[in-house]
Design a protein around this nucleic acid. Structure first.
Length: 188
DNA sequence: TACGCGATCGTG
DNA sequence: ACGATCGCGTAT
């Protein structure tokens, strides 16, 4: 069953980041269905120095973060990679959850092809995940809660054994905040 | 218009 | 540990 708006309502971005561990990221492409278990996320809010939305300053790049929860914020970074975020929080507040990693469970062959044949570490990083799913700026701003959307989140029976909470990766400001969540294993 | 810097990755 | 690579945001 697809996640709907209720999953996002009245929930902090930190809580959403935690709740998304174990949820499936699904993309129905022309070549086949891509599906994976979300196993690592990070929260970003407008009070957070490391966030693109810091200080509630809206720009052309980050404006989607200020929209309604359930939209995709996909940005380009390091001159080569895209990163996928799910917009969170109230309309008008700039918050999102970065999806850092998934464990492939369907369409693995397609993902490997999308990753130029790399069959190890298929989607265990934000840039790798976007390569595996062919996510780019064309999909920025998509509404995954729209029932016609080809990309959406789905409930699963994968229950994290334990959710770890640590500092975030690859940032220079807001380093001390423990806003990263991940699971090492799931029971089914 | 100019410039410095990344919410990264793969190799060494 | 480090280089690749280029759009974005801030400053001029």
């Amino acid at each position: 069953m697809k996640l709907e708006i209720d999953f996002f309502k009245n929930k902090s971005t930190l809580k959403l980041a935690k709740d998304l561990i174990g949820v499936l990221l699904v993309y129905e492409t022309d070549e086949g269905v891509l599906k994976g278990i979300i196993n690592e996320t990070e929260a970003y809010t407008q009070d957070d120095e490391s966030s693109h939305s810091y200080g509630a300053k809206k720009t052309k790049r980050n404006e989607i973060m200020f929209g309604r929860a359930g939209h995709l914020y996909i940005y380009f970074t390091y001159g080569m990679y895209y990163c996928l975020n799910i917009v969170s929080g109230e309309d008008g507040i700039g918050e999102a959850v970065l999806i850092r990693s998934i464990i492939p469970i369907e369409g693995e062959k397609i993902m490997i092809k999308n990753r130029s044949g790399n069959f190890k570490n298929i989607a265990n990083g934000p840039g790798k995940l976007c390569q595996a799913y062919l996510l780019n700026k064309n999909l920025n701003g998509m509404d995954i809660l729209d029932k016609n959307s080809k990309i959406y989140l789905e409930y699963s029976n994968y229950v994290p054994e334990k959710i770890f909470q640590t500092k975030r990766i690859g940032i220079s400001k807001g380093k001390e905040l423990e806003w990263r969540f991940f699971a090492k294993s799931f029971k089914n």
